[in-house]
Simulated scan of single mutants.
Amino acid sequence: MALHEFFSYGPQKDGANVNPMFRKTKDGRIFQWNVAKDDPLCTLKDAFVKVKSSQGFNIELKFDDNIVYGEEELRQTLENILKVVDEHAENRPIIFSSFHPDAAQLIRKLQISYPVFFLTNGGCEIYADVRRNSLDEAIKICKEGGLQGIVSEAKAILRTPNAITRVKDSKLSLISYGQLKYIDTNILLGLISLASSVLF
């Protein structure tokens, strides 16, 4: 998609809405993105310029789960992102993260200035790429690619709490995301104790 095409979607700076935006749910339903208030789309450069430089960024590298990307295609995309980071990030704290194993490993090869984390839901959903289906696979990806750590769905950590020890033994950092409605307090305290020297 060309930049002018990207900017034609959603609310425009003049208040118009040229091309509506849509969302696709995991079960395949598509619906129009309607929110009470939304800003026009922006580039990564715009975000760097408009957000105070003391604010850290987690730059998540998103790729379509249903497409197999070649290394050159990934490299071109990541090099374009790194060019913007090099020119506009200044001294901002930044981490890179991605659910795409090859993208996570390649961004690490292309730069050493910023930490790279592999995103995983740890088997809460199953993907054709087996490297995405468990915390043990996530550990393997990080060790093979020299990544700094894992960002895991919290449910996956609760399902396999002994993985925290394996993450720690691999000298990787561990961050969690997601919402849990019911957590056994004893399990949570045990996980916090196990993870205390892993989390940063």
Rank of each mutant, 00 (worst) to 15 (best):
N19P: 07
N91F: 08
R108F: 05
V116F: 05
R132W: 02
T77H: 12
P93Y: 09
E71I: 13
S53H: 09
S113L: 11
G56R: 07
S173L: 13
L78M: 04
D169I: 04
R92W: 05
P101V: 05
Y114D: 05
K50I: 06
N80G: 14
K24L: 10
S134P: 01
I112P: 07
K140L: 12
T160R: 11
A128Y: 00
L41W: 05
M21E: 13
N133Y: 03
V130Y: 08
P115D: 06
N17M: 14
A154Q: 11
V68L: 13
L199F: 14
A47M: 11
Q32H: 06
S152M: 09
R29S: 13
D86T: 08
Y69L: 02
R29E: 15
K83A: 10
D65F: 01
Q76C: 03
H88Y: 15
I150K: 00
F99A: 00
D14V: 04
E153T: 07
L119I: 03
N34P: 05
R166A: 15
L174P: 01
L110F: 00
R29L: 13
N58S: 14
R75S: 13
T120C: 06
E79P: 02
F99D: 02
F200L: 13
R75M: 10
R131G: 08
M21L: 13
L191W: 02
F22P: 04
K181N: 14
I95A: 03
N66G: 11
V18I: 15
A36N: 11
L135D: 04
S176K: 01
S98W: 00
D86P: 01
Q12C: 09
A156S: 15
N162C: 09
H100M: 06
L41P: 03
A156E: 03
R75F: 06
Q179P: 01
E125G: 00
T160A: 12
L194S: 15
F6Q: 12
E87K: 12
L180C: 07
D184S: 10
I150E: 00
L158W: 10
D64N: 12
R92M: 06
N162A: 14
L106C: 03
F57V: 04
D184W: 05
F7A: 10
R132Q: 08
T120A: 07
R23P: 02
I95M: 02
K181L: 12
L119M: 09
R108Y: 00
L119E: 02
E137F: 09
C124F: 08
L174Q: 04
G70V: 08
Y177M: 04
T120R: 01
G145F: 00
I67T: 12
I126G: 00
G123R: 02
I157Q: 05
P11I: 04
Y69T: 01
P20T: 12
L119S: 03
L180K: 08
